[in-house]
Design a binder for these strands. Structure first.
Lengths: 122, 122
DNA sequence: GTGAGCAACATAGTTAACCTAGTTGGCTCG
DNA sequence: CGAGCCAACTAGGTTAACTATGTTGCTCAC
């Protein structure tokens, strides 16, 4: 990991963890892997993992406890409707995908129209 | 500044900025001072200011634009709107529409470049 | 056996440095 | 005069090092 989609690494990791939480793969009350573990797991630096966890923390999805770990918050006290977060993550991914594809198209279009003559329309 | 309320510096700054936004002292659409200015203003390091702005960014209170500045979001679209679901649905529709249109464009582009010769360049 | 202390590991905060990338405005040169 | 380059400023991302602080379990001395 972490790929290449133009999405920053710490957001990718945050999205992934968020998806795992929303999806139940990380149940409420259970601790996330430690930051060093996550760093290895995602093949990222400690810093970006800390950033990712920080995002989830400010989102309220997760609560860090010094010396113990980072725990998934109980579903009852989750900040937003669970589906909203889900949809948001999905939408983010989709939008990112669209952005990348559009950029490619734009580039192709630019080079071809330049070569071919003026442009049509718009 | 900052402290020493036990509250970490970056949260104090984030809180202060949030208060200014909520209080109208920083109107929607207006840019925050640049990160370097904020760092001087709060007598903090660049790093903590960046963290503080990052918090507001993930909260959606503020939108950063590379090269220009960090702008206060319009009051209409400020967070915690109860009709978040509505906005989400709308966004979903828009994204779907974009995806379809983009797919068409990509297809046209692919066939035309293929037909006309090998692809060009780059 | 029990308690004190210590080592190892955990999150959290702070700072600094470096790099990327977008915007803007001014200056130079053709 | 205009086009294009360039310098200065902007936010954003990444990494690394250091510090602080809390938790837990082990060992060792008594």
């Amino acid at each position: 990991m972490v790929k290449n989609t133009g999405q920053p690494a710490y957001l990718q990791i945050a999205d992934d963890l968020r998806a795992q939480i929303r999806g139940g793969s990380l149940a409420p009350g259970t601790p996330l892997p430690s930051t060093t573990k996550l760093a290895e797991q995602y093949d990222a630096s400690l810093s970006v993992v800390k950033l990712a966890v920080g995002v989830l923390r400010t989102e309220g999805l997760v609560i860090g406890q010094q010396g113990k770990g980072v725990f998934v918050r109980a579903a009852d006290e989750l900040p937003l409707a669970p589906e909203v977060g889900d949809e948001l993550a999905e939408l983010r991914a989709t939008v990112q995908d669209l952005a990348v594809r559009l950029a490619k198209v734009e580039e192709q279009l630019a080079t071809s129209t330049t070569r071919r003559s003026g442009r049509s329309s718009r």
